[in-house]
């Protein structure tokens, strides 16, 4: 299935800003995070089609997953 992945801030470095990617049915947000080698402890906002989701959310064909890093400095 085709899923659009949008990465933000530091997660773009060495990866991409936005890409349509092919994943098998049943792929979760956690699987995408692992596939892209994103650091789990630095995950900020995770959204599918503008709705906040958890790592165990299963993706569907045509959805857009947005991943932001954790920002907490002051």
């Amino acid at each position: 299935m085709k899923v659009t992945v949008k990465l933000f801030a530091t997660f773009r470095a060495g990866r991409f800003n936005i890409e349509v990617r092919d994943y098998p049915a049943g792929t979760t947000v956690a699987d995408v995070v692992k596939d892209l080698e994103l650091p789990g402890e630095k995950l900020g906002i995770l959204m599918i089609n503008h709705r906040h989701v958890d790592l165990d959310r299963v993706l569907s064909e045509g959805e857009t997953l947005a991943i932001f890093p954790l920002v907490g400095g002051g």
């Binding site: 801030a9 530091t10 789990g40 402890e41 630095k42 995950l43 900020g44 906002i45 995770l46 906040h52 958890d54 790592l55 890093p69 954790l70 920002v71 907490g72 400095g73």
Partner: peptide, 11 residues
């Protein structure tokens, strides 16, 4: 901070 695991951010 829904997915925060206890550490610092990318700062």
């Amino acid at each position: 901070y829904r997915h925060w695991q206890g550490g610092k951010g990318v700062e």
